[in-house]
Amino acid sequence: MRSGAPVIGLLFNPLSGRIRKRKDAIRRVLAGLPGATCSEVTNAPEIKASVDAFIQADIDLLVIVGGDGTVQGVLCHLFATQPLARWPVLTVVPGGTTNMTALDLGICGKPEFILQQLKGYLLKQIPPVFLQRHVLCIEQAGAAKVYGMFFGVGFIARAVIFSQSKIKQLRITGEIYSGIITFGYLVGLIFGRRDGAWAPVRMSIIERNTGVRHGTYAFLFASTLDRLLFGMRPYWGQEKEPLHITFVRQKPKRPLRSLLALLTGHAETLKEQDGYHSCNTGALELLIDDDYIVDGESYRASSQDGPLRITAAGPIIFLGAGR
């Protein structure tokens, strides 16, 4: 960002999960941010138009007030239209049903309080904390590239898709929302469920330099974030690569104990011969006919269109939480 007072663009999604009940309080804080222009968006065309306007205005900082889905919409449009050299610094105020990107940047709390803190930092000209993160690029022949920070297939995708129609009706958001999904999966696992949201996924996994794995899996996820929900770090690869990959075979050994190890940060004890695999890589390909999710948004993959390829784009620069 340029020295002195930065030029700021604020992208505010009033329909995001944690914002609906706080819209008026958030709008009051936004109005008081120095050097800021605010744009309210509720859909993809509005996000694109607002981002284009901010780029034309040569802003230094783009503040995204929304959830992971809003962040993903911004990332997809910026990658599709702008070279990295023209990007502003990004930061995220967690306002969605899920907010993994913000949490990984150390930003947590009520949106209006975080915006007040940002206002204080700007007025006092406190030195910023910049963080670099790569971004997932998901592509398949015949479809537009999708960018995001978290990819999931198998149980993870089914649970998110199911919850969008059921749990969201209860207006539950944040880590409570994610906790209900996790708890529901554990209960289903204990009682041996293998259908519906617990149905496994058949796929071929092609990793760089390790060949092809064919099989049936409970889930697979990939992320460039250092930590996920609840502060979890459910991957244990040692390779110096930006993509963190973890997948679990259907019917692994000691499933309940092992999933607790994933949730509590002791995943390094899990063994591949027991059905658990994690690594860091630069690229991953999947041959799959199933649904997948990227930052809470659902998509469909077909092996007839060739492999679904996941690579790392960036890195891009975020403004993180102050020390």
Rank of each mutant, 00 (worst) to 15 (best):
L61M: 10
G66C: 00
T98E: 00
S16G: 04
E46N: 03
V29N: 11
E40K: 04
V93D: 11
I55P: 02
G109T: 11
L33K: 06
I64F: 03
D60Q: 08
I26T: 12
K23P: 10
K119Q: 15
G17A: 01
A44Y: 13
E40S: 07
L103I: 11
D24K: 07
V63R: 08
A31I: 09
S50K: 00
G109S: 07
I47F: 04
P83F: 10
R28Q: 13
G73M: 05
P88F: 11
A36R: 05
I26R: 02
L33H: 12
K23D: 13
V93M: 12
V63A: 10
K110L: 08
T81K: 06
P94N: 04
A57M: 10
R28T: 14
G17R: 00
G32Q: 14
L10E: 14
E46L: 02
L15C: 06
G73V: 06
L118E: 13
H77M: 03
G17Y: 00
V63C: 11
G109K: 12
A102K: 13
L10H: 10
F79L: 01
Q82K: 07
N99K: 02
G73T: 07
L118K: 07
C108K: 12
K110G: 09
G32D: 14
K23E: 15
V89C: 10
F12T: 01
T42N: 08
S16N: 09
R28D: 15
K23H: 11
G95N: 07
N99R: 02
R22C: 04
G69N: 01
A57P: 04
H77A: 01
I19D: 08
F12W: 08
I47Q: 01
F12N: 02
K23S: 10
A102M: 11
T81F: 02
K119G: 11
G73K: 07
N13E: 04
N13P: 02
R18W: 09
P94Q: 06
L78N: 03
I114M: 09
F79R: 03
R86Y: 13
P111F: 09
I26F: 12
I19A: 03
G95S: 03
N43L: 03
T42Y: 11
A25H: 07
G106D: 14
Q116I: 09
L30I: 14
K21F: 09
D68Y: 01
A31D: 14
V63E: 14
L33A: 07
L118S: 10
D68E: 00
D24V: 08
Q116P: 09
E112K: 03
T101D: 13
R27L: 13
Q116C: 10
F12Q: 04
F54V: 01
W87R: 01
L103F: 15
G9L: 01
I64L: 06
L15I: 08
C38K: 07
I107P: 14
P111V: 10
A85T: 12
T70Q: 04
Q82R: 05
G9D: 07
P94D: 15
K23A: 09
G106P: 13
R86F: 05
R27A: 09
P88G: 06
L105F: 13
D52H: 04
T91W: 14
L61W: 07
L75D: 05
